[in-house]
């Protein structure tokens, strides 16, 4: 209860939470704002490139599709990709970090060196390369992002695990003869949960951004999917006259990423006030 009270006092964090909650609701129930969910890819060529108006709040694109509907539908794709990527990265990164942090010696060194290698590879370039190999599509973008994002979780968990490993209660458990698995699963994992959640929240924003870049570069989602990056890429050709085409998907990315980052920072402060960044 105390935590909740403290969180509610943090205005930016609450704002972030609000944005994220709205985005999640829209992703689950786009029907709340979109008249015909199945028809978002179909346009009316006569309504091509119309500026924003009460009928078309965000205007229409080059194929006469309702940009507002497509931005709302893009929320689902953005959140699906980021959730899957972050979960996949966690599934790989968290156990590796736990093992590397708990064990010492060559196992730990080996894991952390591999992590360093992945961290040293420019993410975007690796993602593009993987997407090229696997072929264009949302799935390859997701795999590419997961492959580049797990080392961050490994790093976070590794550092936390090392800290907790040195604490007295772990030493005491060893003294009572608890097995390594028990200590790692039941004692260290819950204690690293908080920083991992913070990392995941910030990661959601990061992945949405990177996925948009991949879509923009043409290695992510395939047309006519309502993907924000893809939309910006298509709308770019019509700038600056038909400004609304690229602007509204861009703003959608901006707000959702901002929302996740504000929420992540708020959670971070909650978990550890000393980490408050200026």
């Amino acid at each position: 209860m105390l935590m909740l009270k403290k969180f509610l006092r943090d205005v930016p964090a609450v704002l972030g939470l609000l944005i994220v909650v709205i985005a999640v609701i829209l992703a689950l129930f786009p029907g709340l704002l979109v008249d015909n969910v199945d028809r978002v890819n179909r346009g009316d060529i006569l309504q091509r490139l119309k500026p924003p108006s009460p009928d078309l709040p965000f205007g229409s694109d080059d194929l006469g599709r309702n940009i507002f509907d497509r931005v709302v539908m893009g929320t689902r794709s953005a959140l699906t990709i980021s959730t899957l990527v972050v979960s996949l990265s966690m599934i790989v990164g968290v156990p590796l970090g736990l093992i590397a942090g708990y064990r010492s010696g060559w196992v730990s060194s080996a894991i952390m060196r591999v992590t360093d290698v992945f961290l040293a590879v420019p993410q975007l370039i690796l993602a593009i390369a993987i997407a090229q190999i696997l072929g264009r599509g949302a799935t390859s973008a997701m795999i590419a992002l997961a492959v580049t994002y797990w080392p961050f979780f490994t790093r976070t968990v590794y550092a936390e695990t090392q800290k907790i490993r040195a604490s007295l209660f772990v030493e005491a458990l060893e003294g009572y003869g608890a097995s390594t698995t028990r200590i790692m699963l039941f004692h260290i994992l819950p204690n690293v949960a908080a920083p991992v959640i913070v990392r995941a929240t910030v990661g959601m924003g990061f992945v949405i951004l990177t996925a948009a870049v991949l879509g923009f570069l043409g290695v992510g989602a395939v047309p006519p999917a309502p993907d924000w990056g893809l939309q910006i890429s298509e709308g770019r050709k019509y700038l600056p006259v038909h400004w609304w085409y690229a602007t509204f998907p861009g703003l959608a990315i901006l707000f959702l990423v901002l929302g996740f980052n504000l929420l992540g920072d708020g959670l971070r402060d909650l978990v550890d006030p000393r980490l408050r960044r200026s």
């Binding site: 604490s167 007295l168 209660f169 030493e171 005491a172 458990l173 003294g175 009572y176 003869g177 004692h187 819950p190 204690n191």
Partner: peptide
């Protein structure tokens, strides 16, 4: 050596704070 057990110097810190 389970016949030998240990009481920690700081038994408070020897308890997992989440449990």
């Amino acid at each position: 050596r389970s016949d030998i057990q240990y009481v920690h110097q700081d038994p408070g810190a020897a308890l997992d704070p989440w449990w």
